[in-house]
Design a protein around this nucleic acid. Structure first.
Lengths: 408, 408
DNA sequence: GGACCTTAGTTTGCGACTTAAAATTAGTCT
DNA sequence: AGACTAATTTTAAGTCGCAAACTAAGGTCC
């Protein structure tokens, strides 16, 4: 069903990739431990790591005693081998951050952004990327790629096509626009922001160590990154995981997507505030959504209405999470996004109770519900993981830089 | 992230598997065509198919002209290489069917079943399997394995554990029970019936050729088989795809699972009939569910109430399908199950319209909605695919029969 | 009817790969 | 200093897929 030719050369590539990935995720390791972890013979490990060291991808990092024998030499990924850039295109601004290969941040750049044309955004991205490279004092040739997280669905194909209704984008070929606006030819990786954030939680946050995870992201909108067998699930055209627009109240509140009863209309920040307004019968004080939601949560101990709205929110959210549990049977649910974290901090018990009430017993018993551990930079970090993931996957000879064919 | 050792031997196994699978699914093929389809060199194809022929897995099947050159010799999977058995454990009876390796049915056996203890069912399965082998006149040694589809979730582990509330099973180790009740040591494969039915649609029905499909099954209960990247998605503990118990009307009708507002409570046969009873204010004529639903559909042109209940059903069902579309972004939706087929035959337009109304535009545009093509034997056929899939995957030397380790 | 063309499939020679086993290296212990 | 231990590296052997050369099997053309 999957006609995938396999040549003897692929073996080496695969083993290079396995060893490099193991080193990346499981920290400094000796060749001996690598052999145990990967199942490869010591001879092969020695061989392949030798190549990796020659290529500069891996460096030795001290040694540790081994009671009574030759000490083990630790190996780790060389942070200075290259640099990656993560871009977070948000609804109100863009973030551009530069990292070394182990995703330690070296420089960052924020820019507010009023709604603008895709071309304007692309040229802003291109110039911000230039700036961040310059300010970090990094040689352009060491940049391995630029990952871009956007607030909408991304159709992956020959070139990525972005649909982001909330910022008025429909069928934007962001990749081409950014490439045209920048003189450097760094590989570009465009991906949905929820998915990049999910990948960040998997690599460095609450998802570590699990293979089946759903990362639920609640902010102004509601989305999810579904991780199956260790990888972010994309579906046929990369728009899987649109949890926010699943129907949870048939015929219910109108959602900005045009349908009725979407989860987002109940547990998205806007939906919460609107429900409170309706219940209270008057306007809320102005200010941005984020502080208004915080104020609402603060008011809960004193205000019956606020408390009730939040309780109901926990109920809807629990039912929404239960749907994910029943459909995906994950081992872990991570609740993230600014509104998700705020709700989780005050209502986690209620959310968990509602989840239990709506999920089937067996899949419910498999899960733990946790809060996301990453801060507001998660989307940018996640975007920066994209070129790193490409490097780990291919583990290709770095002298041949990634070509479009490799990425596709 | 996936430390999977790769030896040079695995290459051969993988290529054996690829070629055997290609032959299985894409009919008789010449070595030349195999080479093109698999990307392997002609030399390797020649080599590997030689082995497969020696092992008896593949046989030559005539030849075809090739304008002006040596004719191509066609190869195909040898149907007589072995036999497989599929068992459908339903709520009211069991079916046992025996097939050759290409899943042509050779013998079948039905048995009504009143609710009984798991041990009684297991011994009935064991004796029915014996009978079907005897009646087909097949040598016991050629049976490659027995697949069993059950109406509940199956936790795959060292041994399969079945939870099937509708027949009162909770934590039943069916595999062990059947093994204990039968003297033969054929490998057993236990799987959820919706998943086996989904696999049957993928191999022989409406799912052919697609890689991301959701097969929605509506009968008395409601379930789904989610196919991602060509394989049935199982989740962390194999209970993924419990679509019937996702919440679609928060706080709505009580469901037999104990929660409120599950999809099954609206579009499952029982839910439909119960909604009609409530709307009509009186009892329906007796008879089994299946004929009562048929009567309801027949009555629709004359009865306003029946028509309205069915319209509403299409609405709920469309919303439920839209949730699958938004979350999984499949390329195809297959509507199956006896009630699903009945509804689909009369209400498909309405169902599609409701799906469009609730799904996001982009993922909606990717899908086609089709009706299932397989009849009431789908669960048994699908169960029988399990040992075949194991054979295709391993493509192992048949002299070493499958061991538990290989299956796990 | 025989030289020649076309296409399918097989054999050969080669480079690349992993592994088991032997050899080497780098320390600790006494 | 010599014995001992444990981590790597080297060596020799066996497998694999591929490109190229070669054989098989049929048709065409004169």
């Amino acid at each position: 069903m999957a006609p995938k030719r396999t040549t003897v050369r692929d073996l080496r590539r695969q083993n290079r990739s396995t060893l490099l990935s193991t080193l990346f995720f499981d920290g400094p390791l000796s060749r001996y431990e690598l052999s145990r972890l990967s199942g490869l013979s010591a001879a092969t490990v020695s061989n392949v790591t030798g190549e990796l060291v020659d290529d500069g991808l891996v460096v030795e990092a001290g040694s540790v005693d081994s009671d009574g024998g030759r000490p083990r030499v630790l190996l780790r990924v060389n942070p200075a081998f290259g640099h990656v850039i993560g871009v977070d295109v948000g609804e109100t601004g863009i973030k551009v951050e530069l990292f070394d290969l182990t995703l330690t941040q070296l420089a960052a750049f924020d820019h507010a952004l009023s709604p603008s044309s895709p071309a304007a955004v692309a040229s802003l991205i291109a110039s911000a990327v230039r700036d961040v490279v310059a300010s970090a004092g990094v040689a352009a040739s060491t940049v391995l790629g630029v990952g871009i997280g956007v607030p909408g669905t991304v159709e992956q194909g020959a070139t990525a096509v972005v649909h982001a209704p909330t910022i008025g984008w429909d069928g934007v070929r962001l990749e081409e626009l950014v490439a045209a606006a920048s003189e450097s030819a760094w590989p570009l990786y465009v991906e949905n922001g929820a998915k990049t954030q999910g990948q960040a939680e998997m690599w460095f946050g609450a998802g570590r160590g699990a293979r089946h995870v759903v990362i639920a992201l609640i902010g102004s909108g509601v989305g999810a990154a579904v991780v199956t067998d260790g990888g972010v699930y994309r579906g046929a055209t990369s728009s899987a995981g649109e949890w926010g627009h699943t129907t949870i109240v048939y015929g219910g509140r109108p959602c900005r997507c045009g349908a009725l009863g979407c989860l987002e209309a109940y547990v998205g920040a806007e939906g919460i505030l609107d429900r409170y307004r309706k219940a209270r019968g008057r306007e809320l004080p102005g200010g941005d959504e984020q502080s208004t939601v915080a104020a609402l949560i603060d008011a809960a101990p004193r205000s019956k209405t606020a408390a009730r709205v939040l309780e109901e929110t926990a109920g809807y959210l629990g039912a929404g999470i239960a749907n994910l549990v029943n459909l995906f049977n994950p081992e872990r649910i991570v609740l993230g996004g600014w509104a998700g974290l705020a709700l989780g901090a005050h209502q986690l018990d209620r959310i968990v109770a509602a989840t239990r009430a709506h999920a089937l017993r067996h899949p419910y018993e498999q899960i733990s519900i946790e809060l996301g551990r990453l801060g507001p930079d998660a989307v940018a970090v996640g975007a920066a993981t994209l070129p790193v993931a490409a490097l780990l996957d291919r583990a290709a000879d770095p002298r041949k830089p990634a070509s479009r064919a490799d990425i596709a």
